[in-house]
Design a protein around this nucleic acid. Sequence first.
DNA 1: TTTGCTTATCTTTTT
DNA 2: GATAAGCAAA
Length: 716
Amino acid sequence: MPHIDFEKSLNPEQLEAVTTPDGPVLVVAGAGSGKTRTLVYRVAWLIQKGLSPNSILLLTFTRKAASTMLERASELLGIDCQRVCGGTFHGFSHRMLRRHARLIGYPPNFTILDRADVQHILKFLCQELGLTGKDKRFPKASTLGVIASKLANLDLDIEQLLYRHFPHLGIHAEGIYKVIEAYHIYKKNHALMDYDDLLINWKRLLKTHPEIRQDVGSRFRHILVDEYQDTNSTQAEIVRLMACGHDNVMVVGDDAQSIYAFRGANFKNILEFPRLFPNCKVIKLIRNYRTTQPNLDCTNAIIAHAREKFTKRLVAQRAGGEKPILYRANDELDQARFVTTQIRNFLSDGVSPSQIAVLFRAGFHSYHLETELNRCFIPFEKRGGLKLVESAHIKDFLSLLRILINPYDRFSWTRVLLLIERLGTKGVNKILTNILMTEDPVLSLESYKTKASWRPKTKELALLLKRMRKCEDLSNVMKNMEAWIEPFITSNYVDDYPRRLLEIQQLRAMASQYDDLASFLADLALDPPEGIEDTQQGEKIVLSTVHSAKGLEWQVVFVISLCEGRFPSPNATLNGDEVEEERRLFYVASTRAKDHLFFCYPQYITQAGGGSIPVSASRFLNEIPTSLLRPWKRPHLAKRHSGSFAARGAPTSAFSGPSSPGSKADLPFNPGQRVRHPIFGPGTVVQMVTDEKVKVCFDSVGDKTLHLGYAKLSVI
DNA sequence: TTTGCTTATCTTTTT
DNA sequence: GATAAGCAAA
């Protein structure tokens, strides 16, 4: 094991946190202050002190965060740290619950419900209870889902909850109560757990079974928790219970970066931590290593307006830097073009694509930018927004797999049976009420007696399931299931079934990493992939929702659509607390930049139904003193080219828009000269169009007119 | 009862 | 642009 010089690698505060011998530690760390570094070194320090890696538990917000940290710790120590138990609260709880499921009356292979599943079940139950027909204004399934979750997390009864958070739904209290109750029974009867159940049941198990508590306490001698501001009270309690007997807990968080209150997270957990662990050590990290002073002045100004006082004022450790740029665009298209142009500049300056990110409030805000980037052949990766597993065909396929694991999962049965022609909700319910009562629903379905036209299909399904559940080979199972569902996909999605079939095939490729179906399905539910893994390698710029950008950093960051109606989200502007969270969200976004930070906002946005409306700059932008920003001067209106190549679909507009100040066209090119462009590759100069524009015929993409202020053409 | 067609309604953010 | 809901027809 190599020697690590902790003193040299860490600042005094970090060092103190890392080398705390035993007992509870709370690290309050500002953005970019090296909290990940602190955790990584803590893991390294503990292992170097002789602690076995598998007696460390590292809980993070995403699974990826945990694995990156462990990779770094491995590098540091020169030994394999993968034996450290790392993951999310939900993932860890799930593993523990599977082991002890019988104790709470569940089979070990219970199904995990995602948000959409929950909503479907709630909707079904509303229909069953006759609540939707009677009153059209009964809350929708999505609202009921939020209520169910808050009820599970907030320790309030329905009346209090409705009074406090949904006063307008008070008249439906009785109906809501009935649905929620039915929902709990439904989950229990069909071996289902939602995200909240994973945590709550694990907490309950720890609470009621001292032997489990003791077992966990002696197995994991040190518990480290990242992003503590985004944990909820249940998670805080779980930490408290799991640390019984040793209190070796280190939690790291930043109350100013709490952005998951909408989901039950409670940043007051940080303030309450010292009360849960009375003799805890509190350490503040306020040195910022990520960015430069001008950026920091700006982000400090953003959070200074927060209603709660966040007293950490960060100090930059890096010299130099320039003020963030503010760009006021005409509309969203103009904004997209500006960003694209700037990105091209950075790329031609040699900035790596993976060091550039565009951040926005909601998934659909990047729509214009995506088309613009596509036109310019700039590859990007989108994070956040709609996930692969949320599309209908994938859910159908996963339902088929889920009934194989959990034959009591009525919800999945419904989805699958509805695929069959001439089977609708009524028919499905009739079948299911009959077969789910029996010992073996699959066998019952096989021998289900009826003259209905769908009979051959259901029998075929039952036989397939009967065959497949005996099959050990996962890839074989996937292949057979795929074959069964293929005709349904082909006939249901006439216009784009090839794409959907391909995605199902890709799912099979993902499953090949697993030995058993149950853990594959659990991982899909707990850590849904963003999309299909791209086969083509190569670095890409990142488009991401602010939420998905949490904990990451890039050299160049654009925060776009900073206008009223987009950011803050219009749904949040009625409620003071929610506006506060939006502000913290803006703070998180702007603290992701290492060097270059851009704020953009359009003056017109397109509404859902079509048509554009004028909007003002985001209230958060107006809170930043103008002296801290550099407004971008647009020299003249952008003018689009309408040359011949436009008809061929080649990019035309990327070269219009405002030019960067100080960029000059200095190198005149001569026709026939060979040049190289960082994106388009080699080409031949056709002619100089104006002083600043040159027309080049590229070997790869044909004719382009380039603005010399942007395009870094080199002579070859 | 199921299906197929049309129209409306949205679209925060996510383990 | 995708899905839910509404309505008429088989």
